[in-house]
Design a protein around this nucleic acid. Structure first.
Lengths: 222, 222
DNA sequence: TTTTTTGTTGACCGAATGGTCAGGACATGG
DNA sequence: CCATGTCCTGACCATTCGGTCAACAAAAAA
C-alpha cells in the first residue's frame, strides 16, 4: 500500500545504456533490482511487497526478476545482507580511536550519515529484526554478537582507563543504535513534526550535534 | 511467517465463559480479537498477517472476525489506535513535574515499562510509522504534533529557568522515544545479544538506570 | 410460545500473488 | 556465416487471501 505506480515512467532501468561486457551488464541489472527491492520492502514490508511492484519500479518485466533471483525470499535476503554490510562499515571509525570522545563521536556521525543516505536499508533491517529476524538470525548470533562484544570491550577499557564515566557498554550501544537509526526508521514521523518537510542540511547538522552532545556529556567526557 | 499454529490448542478465547450481558460478551470478544491481531500484526507486519492466522490465535472462525470488524484494515486501525492511547498515557508522568530530573526520569521509566509490557503494540506502531503512516497520518499531524509541541515548550521553560543545559527539545524527545522503544522494537536483537534469553528483572532495572543516567547527565542535571 | 434481534459458522468466490515455462532475441565464439 | 549459450518476456498456473453469504443457533423481546 503506497509505492506509486512506476509502470510507464521513471523506471530505474534504462534498457542497455552500456556497451560494456556481459558480466558488467549483469551486475548493473542486479543492482537495479536490489535498489528497487530495497525501496519496496522498506515501504511495504516483506509481506506487503510484491514482485510486480519491484519489477515496475525497476522497469523490468516480473519474469526477469526471477531470472536473476530465484525467489522473493532470496531477493529479500540479498537486500538485508547488503544493508548489514553497509551498516558494519561504520565500525571502522570506531576502531583505532584514542578515546570515547573521538571514537563514539565519529561513530555517531557515521551512523547518522547512513540514516540519512540509506533510510530504506535501515527500515528493511529494522523490519527484519522486529519480525524476529527469520532470515538473518545467524548473522545476529555470529557477526553482530562478535562485533558487539569487541566494541563493549573497548568501552570497558576506556572506563578502566578513566576516560569516561562508569557506564554499561551494552546499554550505551543500544542507545547509539536506537538514536541514530531512529532518524531513518521514523523519518516520516520526524518529517511530519517538522511541518511535513524533510530535515534540511542545517537540521541534520543540528541533529548530529544534539545527539553527540547529550551522549558524550552523558558518559562524562564533556 | 512465524506465529505458531493455534488452531486446536491454547486459543485466547474460551467459548462463553461468562454469564454476563450481551454487551459484555461483545466487548470481551472484541478484546480477544484485538489482542490476537496485535500479536500477529507485530510478528508478521500488516501485509504478512492473515485474517486466518488472527482467527486461529483468537480461537474463532475467520468469518466471525468479519462480523466484529468489517475489514482487515479496520481491525488494524483499531489495533494502532489502541496502542497510540496507551503510548500517550505516559505523558501524564511528564506533566506537573517540578523539573527535568523528575519529569524526564519518570517519563523514561514509564516508556520503558510500556516497552516491557506492550512490546507487540510498540512494534505495530513502529511498523506503521516506518511504512509512512498510511493509516494514522492524521494522528501524527494533530494529536502527536500538539503533544510534542506542548512538551517541547515545557523543556524550553526548564532551560530558560536554568534547570537543565541548553538542548534542542525535539532532538531530546526523539532520543527518548528512540531509546525507550528500542527495547520493545528490537527486543529480539537484544535477547540474542543477551545469550538468547529475555532480559531479567534486574537487567530491566539496569537498562532503566543506564538510560536515565546517560540522558539526565547528558542534559546537565546530574 | 412466538417473533425478532444478535451472534456464529462452513462453504464459497473473485482477485491477486509467487512462480513457471516455452519460445524468442541477442550477443559471443568459432 | 552458423552454432551456442545467455538473456528476456508474455502467457499461464496453482495457491492463497480478504471478504461474502445463506443457513443456523441462541438469546431477548413480545
Amino acid at each position: 500500500m503506497r509505492v506509486q505506480d512506476e509502470k510507464n515512467s521513471n523506471s530505474l532501468k534504462n534498457r542497455r545504456p552500456n556497451g560494456g561486457s556481459r558480466a558488467k551488464a549483469r551486475r548493473e541489472t542486479e543492482e537495479t533490482i536490489l535498489t528497487a527491492a530495497e525501496t519496496v520492502f522498506a515501504e511495504a514490508g516483506f509481506g506487503g511487497a510484491t514482485m510486480q511492484l519491484i519489477a515496475d519500479l525497476a522497469g523490468l518485466p516480473k519474469a526477469n526478476l526471477h531470472y536473476y533471483f530465484d525467489t522473493k525470499e532470496a531477493l529479500y535476503r540479498r537486500v538485508v545482507e547488503r544493508i548489514f554490510n553497509i551498516w558494519l562499515e561504520a565500525a571502522d571509525v570506531f576502531d583505532g580511536a584514542a578515546g570515547p570522545t573521538e571514537g563514539i563521536g565519529a561513530y555517531i556521525d557515521a551512523k547518522m550519515e547512513i540514516s540519512r543516505h540509506h533510510p530504506n536499508g535501515s527500515k528493511v533491517w529494522a523490519s527484519e529484526v522486529m519480525h524476529g529476524a527469520p532470515v538473518i538470525q545467524d548473522y545476529l548470533e555470529t557477526t553482530l554478537r562478535d562485533w558487539t562484544e569487541g566494541r563493549c570491550a573497548v568501552i570497558r577499557r576506556w572506563i578502566s582507563e578513566g576516560k569516561m564515566a562508569q557506564t554499561d557498554p551494552h546499554h550505551l550501544m543500544y542507545m547509539l543504535w536506537a538514536t541514530t537509526q531512529h532518524y531513518a526508521d521514523f523519518s516520516h514521523q520526524i518529517d511530519t513534526l517538522n511541518g511535513g518537510d524533510p530535515l534540511s542540511d542545517a537540521q541534520w547538522e543540528a541533529a548530529k550535534t544534539s545527539v553527540k552532545t547529550i551522549v558524550l556529556r552523558g558518559i562524562g567526557v564533556l
